[in-house]
């Protein structure tokens, strides 16, 4: 009787291979497969109903899907840019503080410590048109006497969501940029002063180029975050009113679990992933360019 003998390297790698297969490979293959079927959660037998690229073609022709796609890109663009500017400002200000800087740094991190779901609830309350803080404040100050429908009006609702998103995550930029500010060599900054730069010029021509790699890292991290935005939106508006704040993943989540059309949701999911991949590649290219610009190697 000959026993099957596996090569040692395979035996040693087997635990890792089994775990990876169980948690990554199988779900990935299964979800990808199901995107080519008419799989519905409520009718398990549909998992075997092969419909080819129908789901993908359907998504490509689905206006709701593309609106959600576009809205996600819009949210991402606005939120990321504003967070970057605010985070940069915050980091520069904190870096100038001499006493109590540790405390400030810690306080700056607070918004990141809350669950996004709770932040969603909090802002849902703050922007509520009847009992919300914002309307109460505006009315008490006599600035308006109407109840502004922050979460009901389509444009205002998107604004409110962006506001909440920025509130939670500006500190990601602030912390990373602050780390960048600490890492900047002082010599070139001093050389710039002697070379005749105003404080703004030193910042613009010397400090900022040093910070760009840090900004792009923050951008890459946050672009993945925002591209999969779900919780805050789900809580604050549930994609409403009339799909005006529907993002990719609220749409996909609804399709998968409310409408139970898992096959179609998976197909949309795979298209949505392309967006994340695109932004990741884009920001990493930028990062590499900024680093080589500084002579930091590739």
């Amino acid at each position: 009787m000959t026993r099957l003998r596996l090569p040692p390297w395979l035996v040693l790698l087997l635990p890792a291979i089994i775990i990876l297969a169980a948690v990554v490979l199988v779900p990935l293959v299964l979800s990808f497969y199901s995107s080519f079927t008419a799989y519905q959660l409520t009718r398990p037998e549909t998992l075997w109903k092969w419909i080819g690229t129908f789901n993908y073609r359907k998504a490509a022709g689905d206006a709701n899907f593309w609106w959600a796609f576009g809205r996600t890109v819009l949210l991402l663009t606005i939120a990321l840019n504003l967070e970057m500017l605010l985070g940069l400002g915050l980091a520069v200000m904190v870096s100038k503080v001499t006493t109590g800087q540790r405390l400030l740094r810690t306080a700056m991190m607070f918004p990141m410590m809350f669950s996004p779901v709770l932040v969603g609830f909090q802002f849902k309350f703050i922007f509520n048109d009847n009992v919300g803080l914002v309307n109460n404040a505006l009315q008490s100050l006599g600035l308006t006497d109407v109840a502004i429908p922050w979460l009901v009006d389509g444009h205002l609702a998107l604004f409110s969501i962006i506001f909440a998103e920025i509130w939670t995550s500006t500190s990601v930029f602030a912390i990373l940029i602050l780390a960048g500010l600490y890492a900047i060599p002082q010599d070139p900054v001093e050389a710039a002063k002697v070379d005749g730069c105003t404080p703004w010029q030193s910042f613009r021509f010397v400090t900022l180029p040093f910070l760009m790699p840090f900004i792009y890292i923050a951008m890459a991290i946050r672009s993945l975050d925002v591209a999969r935005a779900y919780d805050i939106v789900q809580i604050m508006t549930n994609g409403g009113p009339a799909r005006r704040t529907e993002l990719l993943w609220t749409l996909i989540g609804r399709t998968a679990y409310v409408d139970a059309r898992m096959g179609y949701a998976n197909a949309m999911g795979y298209i949505a992933i392309l967006l994340s991949i695109f932004f990741t590649i884009y920001f990493f290219r930028k990062l590499t360019a900024a680093r080589s610009e500084l002579g930091m190697g590739v």
Binding site: D187, E190, A191, A192, P209, F210
Partner: peptide
Amino acid sequence: SMVFQNYALYPH
């Protein structure tokens, strides 16, 4: 104008 010990050139 000043020449620094660590050159202090603008690397970019």
